[in-house]
Nucleic acid binder design. Sequence first.
DNA 1: TTTGAAAGAATGTCCTGACAAACTGTTGCA
DNA 2: TGCAACAGTTTGTCAGGACATTCTTTCAAA
Lengths: 241, 241
Amino acid sequence: MRFDLDRASPVPLYHQLASAIERAIQDGQLAPGSSLENEIALAQRLGISRPTARQALKSLVDRGLLVRRRGVGTQVSPAQIHRPVGLTSLYDDLEGSGQLPTTRMLDWERRQASVEEAEELELAAGVDIVAIKRLRLAGDEPIAVLTNLLPEMLAPSREDLERTGLYECLRERGYQPSVAKQRIGARTATAAEARMLEESPRSALLTADRVAYDDAGHVVEVGHHIYRASRYVFETTLFSR
Amino acid sequence: MRFDLDRASPVPLYHQLASAIERAIQDGQLAPGSSLENEIALAQRLGISRPTARQALKSLVDRGLLVRRRGVGTQVSPAQIHRPVGLTSLYDDLEGSGQLPTTRMLDWERRQASVEEAEELELAAGVDIVAIKRLRLAGDEPIAVLTNLLPEMLAPSREDLERTGLYECLRERGYQPSVAKQRIGARTATAAEARMLEESPRSALLTADRVAYDDAGHVVEVGHHIYRASRYVFETTLFSR
DNA sequence: TTTGAAAGAATGTCCTGACAAACTGTTGCA
DNA sequence: TGCAACAGTTTGTCAGGACATTCTTTCAAA
């Protein structure tokens, strides 16, 4: 098993090795259940130190791609466990459903925050916010209504948002959400919602309410999303500790 | 800031240090946003090597309790981010709702698996399984119906299950689920379900369907859980990568 | 007073080395 | 033949050391 490491690259060696192993797993060169050579031999063969090899292997263990047991060795995880790290990603919560969504802008409005909204965004009452409402479609079929609130000064313009995604816009503007707290729930649809989502009245909706924070703990964005339960589930991998 | 490390303890030093720092954060001795001493000084003061100290700090960074920046140092994460690693835990998916649940056994049945059930459990058709149905209550109020299917040979007895939780029983029997794939969805309740959960007919249910695997990739347990949407949400913390 | 460079501070990456713990396979003894 | 002990194998923990990168502060020059 060849892993090419480029010592002139700015990418750390452990990172290069982890990527190469991951690629080999995904290409099928490393089959689920198969054993890798031991870390001492691997390090020696690649001309790197053992802790460097360990760091690469550990990062893959943490992501569920490898399993390691003392006295036994390092193995590729069984096939069922081969997901990119088990979380619904902060950026791509639709991809778990295997659908390629498009997004249509329904509304973009600058206005004063209500008391509740200001509280959610951890802003003073009455400040200006931008409220964005979009429809998510898979093909021509609506699957979700996404409402997002942002402090005015962070908010992308309507034009920017029609060009690319909300988080991409935020990133371009130098605002990097790093953590989000999300609540997933369910309720029945209002008549307006049912119409918008092409469901029958009082059908079940899956809801996701989210507050995203930057590194300093400031609220970057609040999202209230509703999904057709008939068309959408959240998929998650859980690891025991 | 004192951290007592017991070198005679079988618990690894890095683990002891991580726990001590975590405790200090939770006790309020280390306030959100405050800086820890640098890793070199910390290691020196505690009489441990720098990589050992790093390992403790890294494990806390990975869990969102600390933030580290090159040139700046190590700080306690802002208060909003102080959750144990962001996933709904494999074992305690009710704890995020801040409720202390009790569990009532509704049914425990050994029978032959249907075709669909055998497929879910990755067993040959017609083999014996155990189907368990329980009601989860918060106080006297029902909040969830939990159905679990297990290969017969792994399944705890009815008596064991009334004494302790399913995962605890599995652990005692030497079966250790390590990964689970979960799908969270929503639908409206059937009349029987609504009655069981003391909700009105056709009210919204939050659903969780889960397959849990052991380290070797064998299915340990399949769960089909329904929750009253009026009483229950899944709370999750999402980290950007 | 402002701007740019240098110095100081701290984490990140990588190295060599050694011992402990856990697992598997082999051998010896009852 | 079966069981226990031992040997071999591999990962896990820990140590000491060095250099690179990134960030902040200070100092000097314009």
